[in-house]
Design a protein around this nucleic acid. Structure first.
Lengths: 286, 286
DNA sequence: AGTTGTGAACTAGTTCACAGCT
DNA sequence: AGCTGTGAACTAGTTCACAACT
């Protein structure tokens, strides 16, 4: 019975060129279009149209990927409760989506259900983990050990297993060497070495805004291709780097927008329906 | 070059869990849907087609709202730098979107640009603030004063101004009364009283997963209609409550998916294009 | 009978491209 | 000459509705 809203978040896959040459801007070469970027020798390989297993993964809509992660969490809970089988209707309601969407999402990863019965919980867990790439380990580093960085480091091994925090970085000399959540903080200057040594594939930026872009550049230079950015800044990265951001200010402002919209609606309703027993004029409900 | 992707959100503010029921749905009835089917003659009031200021706000796509918040941040930076005017092209690039999208987004809030010139930075700041409801104060409470709760409380007055943290709650007796970021922690049992007294309109949930739903219920019962949820749980709320979530696990897993996809593509490319010289490393193009 | 998997229809969101104003 | 604002075209995502299967 609930209205639920799911936030995507923003995926920023590459942006204009180098950080320095900011306003160069060749005339708008649209997104991924045909053009082989300028001098790049990159030629478009033969564009085969056969849907291999790999193609399949590529074809999963971004929005569905986010939901698969949620289904996985719900399913993991079910495994622990000893549930073996579940229908799309049940799983959907536990995940806060409707069943058609759930089935469509699951169909992107294959056909693992049994008609008339439902889905085998363990099978589904396995398949979603496979698609999400959770069968391999992804070491994470956190840059910026302030309030938030501390909190993140202390989660000790991010969300569940599979995302061990393998390094922490900061610029503050007083912090270097100090263990937080069991891991000693390194200096950001050591990013190249440490990232390589510990095979870090995901970088988390929790620095103050002014430092974020430079930290990002360093991570990218060190080979990190996936970044989770908590700093309220729009990062500029090359095309082959994936950035997701978590932006408190934006979230709060979106909520604020809804508060305002709601108030306006109430005012409007009150204005015309002054006669109606407005009842739910203000807050209330339940 | 500029590959950019922006993911909006899913809008299910009033999902009637009843699968068949709806379907009538005149254009926008929305939000306060059929719920009170019986008594209240939810007459469609005069279906005026005039775009009042209010109507306008309602019509802004969710995805655009999120971006407006980003434009606002960029613009605020420009104000400080003393910039007076900016073109859609420039602002777009600073915000990491393309100019057509930016202009379309701004058009939802009105026409404040000057053809041949651009936008007046201060005017735009004012208008976006107005639309996002930032002209009023939105008091916030944080429930769950663990690592994350601490970090949030210490931001002291959330993102910029406008979102003062007015209360903190926890269940731990050792925490009650202890000031964090200047605010003494109250017991969750006091949610009803404190929320009312301090006119809190936004609740932030930073509790462990098992406690999240109950805390949410309490906040809702206390009249909070907007919730930002950090707990990895799908909250069930009534239709008139807006929930946004920040889910670390999901973010990490989406990144993991992209790492995997990338690796697959690389493998694939290597498989067929073994002859090609391009070899410039991993992946390219999307 | 019961439930999945999926084309087809629909809705939301993005980009194009250009008329219209300064 | 330049830049905004926006209909129209397009793309992505969601929901419907039902055939296919157990």
């Amino acid at each position: 019975m609930a209205g639920q809203r799911d936030e995507g978040g923003e995926v920023v896959t590459g942006t204009p060129t180098a950080p320095g040459a900011d306003r160069v801007a060749a005339p708008r070469v649209a997104v991924e279009d045909t053009g082989s970027a300028g001098a790049a020798p990159a030629e478009q390989v033969a564009e085969t149209a056969e849907p291999t297993a790999r193609e399949r993964a590529r074809a999963i809509p971004e929005a569905a990927v986010a939901r698969l992660a949620i289904y996985l969490r719900v399913l993991s809970g079910l495994v622990e409760q000893g549930v073996n089988t579940i229908s799309s209707e049940e799983l959907a309601s536990a995940a806060g989506v409707n069943s058609a969407k759930l089935r469509k999402d699951l169909s992107y990863i294959g056909s693992y259900g049994t008609r008339g019965v439902g889905y085998d919980v363990e099978v589904l867990v396995g398949q979603i983990e496979r698609i999400l790439g959770l069968t391999r380990k992804h070491s994470v580093c956190v840059v910026g050990i302030g309030n938030l960085g501390h909190a993140l480091a202390n989660y000790g091994g991010f969300p569940g297993r599979g995302f061990p925090v393998a390094a922490l970085f900061d610029v503050d000399p007083d912090l270097i060497g100090v263990p937080v959540g069991g891991i000693p903080v390194d200096h950001v200057d050591d990013i190249p070495r440490v990232v390589a040594e510990r095979e870090i594939s995901i970088g988390v930026i929790a620095t103050p805004p002014p430092a974020a872009q430079e930290v990002c550049d360093r991570l990218v230079a060190a080979g990190v291709q996936c970044i989770l950015n908590f700093a309220p800044v729009v990062l500029q990265v090359p095309d082959d780097v994936e950035v997701r951001k978590v932006d408190l200010a934006v979230e709060m402002q979106i909520l604020s927008f809804h508060v305002a919209r709601r108030a306006d609606e109430a005012a409007e309703a009150a204005a015309e329906g002054a006669d109606l027993s407005d009842v739910d004029g203000v807050v209330m409900r339940r």
